[in-house]
Design a protein around this nucleic acid. Structure first.
Lengths: 155, 155
DNA sequence: TATTGTTATACTCTATAACTATA
DNA sequence: TATAGTTATAGAGTATAACAATA
């Protein structure tokens, strides 16, 4: 196998990842959101129990407390006790929270459009190559659901 | 423009980045190296002044002190005063340090081979698409040197 | 004056363990 | 017993500021 080519791909991937990270950080900072709060806001179903957010972010539940504290301080979410299971607190986005989340998503879409600045045919080719790598059965059944999505920390 | 396609590419890129990160973390852990020390070891020219390592890792010089402390504790590098400029300390890999660095590079090459597990033609196509994205003149002159390379945190 | 490297300090992110209140 | 969420605490990683030695 041509390992030098794989090494070059690794290096190129790192440079692209750097661009994506920089773009997202800039977006989050522009919206006055620390990275962890941005990631949470990005993926928050509303309403959803805190436990679900910990699963999506693939982090310990104890972290979620602090992250949600921050979101609550900013008036973006509220904690509401679940009437059916009083251990649970459901997170509900405020109106401002929804607006912030939408702005965040729009900003990240802009970053995507900039980073993947390619003719449509190239974009499709790239998508197909990405899918091919991710569907590799060495990783498990094809298309197995992960429960997490973009910006979470899968695998 | 087809922004949904760009969004999908972003999500796929995150999943790939997760695989790469997991693989590299596993490699570094297997070699008993914390991530920061692994990154430093990966890129250390030998001999090189500490200042250069800070530049390569794109972090503050004060961090390098601690990282090099760790590498020195493990017997992987030595600090040597530069005879020509006595402010400078040159970092020199020990024999064990060179062996560790080689093992690290080999491990990361393995991760690259696994992640970019594609037929040769697809790999070349992917490389060309990556290059196309990175050469976008919106980012500056084509091929402008960055001073940093893979695994560093460019941009 | 400017630079190399160090120290002290602080902030963020993350994890573990112990706790409470529920179930 | 087990789970949801909190708190306390500790460990990385990173940043700034002040400092000593040297240029």
């Amino acid at each position: 196998m041509d390992d030098r080519l794989a090494d070059e791909l690794m290096e190129l991937a790192f440079r692209l990842a750097g661009r994506i990270r920089t773009g997202i950080d800039r977006t989050a900072t522009g919206l006055d959101l620390p990275p962890a709060q941005a990631q949470a806001l990005m993926h928050l179903r509303s309403p959803a129990p805190m436990r679900e957010l910990a699963d999506i972010m693939a982090c310990d539940a104890s972290n979620v407390t602090g992250i949600v504290d921050g979101l609550e301080r900013r008036g973006l979410v509220q904690r509401r006790p679940d009437p059916r299971d009083r251990r649970v607190k459901n997170l509900v986005l405020t109106e401002e929270g929804e607006a912030k989340r939408d702005a965040l998503r729009a900003g990240i879409s802009e970053v995507a459009a900039e980073v993947f600045h390619l003719p449509a045919a190239d974009r499709r080719a790239l998508r197909d190559l990405f899918r091919k790598m991710l569907d590799d059965p060495a990783d498990g059944p094809v298309g197995a659901p992960t429960g997490a999505s973009a910006l979470s920390r899968p695998e």
